[in-house]
């Protein structure tokens, strides 16, 4: 197989031109090809929620917020298969937040990839749990007054954990940490910061993909051997 064979024929992604989700999908396909694996891929609802359906594998597009428990059920029945969830920040950290707490605590051997676009994109740009403080959205016209959620700290509330943060601009690094997550024996969570161009990108003056990618490259840096990642740091924190 080549990475192109991982794309389901007859369907084109709904994602905007230049959206980081294209990069995530292509690099996941590359990685599956390199690792010669045919995982079960599952997604929730939202722009990222469409990811599973674009893979030419056995895939599930679940309910909003409920894909982690569904994937846990699949994994418990198919312990021989790799189970990978790809979903958004609203799906995994807001409506589905409770399930992240508990499936990670049960330390189920699966990988959850959270594409954090910092907004509810598919519904038109409302405040999401990861929207930066001060950012203007459809539902925070005066700027958000609350701090965003820190997924890293949720994972770190467990004794065993694997958390990685990357962006689609750091392509090689993104692939490397996803590979590590898949190989991690337990629950692994990868957060990919990839701001929505059309909504929050627009209000931040980063609507053009080139501007967004430059912004990600200039503001985020890869760090190693840290216990806790600070804001704008990319890396892996784990305890096993």
């Amino acid at each position: 197989m080549t990475y192109k064979d991982y794309k389901r024929p007859g369907v084109e992604p709904i994602w905007c031109l230049g959206c980081g989700l294209h990069v995530v999908f292509t690099q996941l396909s590359n990685l599956f090809d390199e690792l010669e694996m045919e995982p079960i891929v599952l997604s929730g609802i939202g722009c990222t929620g469409r990811t599973a359906g674009y893979f030419n594998l056995d895939t599930v597009h679940g309910l909003h917020g409920r894909i982690i428990p569904l994937a846990e059920g699949v994994k418990r029945a198919r312990k021989d298969k790799e189970v990978i969830v790809v979903s958004g920040d609203g799906d995994l950290l807001s409506i589905g937040g409770n399930h992240l707490l508990h499936t990670s605590r049960r330390d189920i051997n699966m990988t959850v990839i959270c594409v954090n676009n910092s907004v509810y994109g598919l519904t038109g740009g409302q405040l999401s749990p990861t929207t930066p403080k001060g950012a203007k959205t459809k539902t925070t016209p005066g700027g958000s007054e609350i701090e965003p959620i820190d997924a890293q700290k949720i994972l770190m509330s467990n004794k065993r954990y694997f958390y990685a943060r990357t962006t689609p601009v750091h392509v090689k690094y993104m692939k490397e940490v996803i590979k590590q997550a898949i190989e991690w024996d337990g629950f692994a969570f990868v957060e990919i910061i990839s701001l929505c161009l059309e909504t929050i990108g627009k209000t931040m003056g980063l609507k053009k993909p080139s501007k967004m990618y430059n912004w990600l490259e200039e503001n985020f840096r890869i760090v190693e051997n840290k216990q806790v990642l600070d804001d704008f740091e990319l890396g892996v924190v784990k305890n096993g």
Binding site: R66, P69, L70, G73, V74, K75, R76, A77
Partner: peptide
């Protein structure tokens, strides 16, 4: 395979997942 879940939303979705995975649930 038995799981006491965090809530009923997880309970039914996990049963759906396990059934898709081939187990009567």
């Amino acid at each position: 395979e038995f799981v006491q879940t965090e809530d009923e939303l997880a309970a039914v979705n996990m049963a759906i997942g396990a059934s898709l995975g081939g187990m009567k649930s």
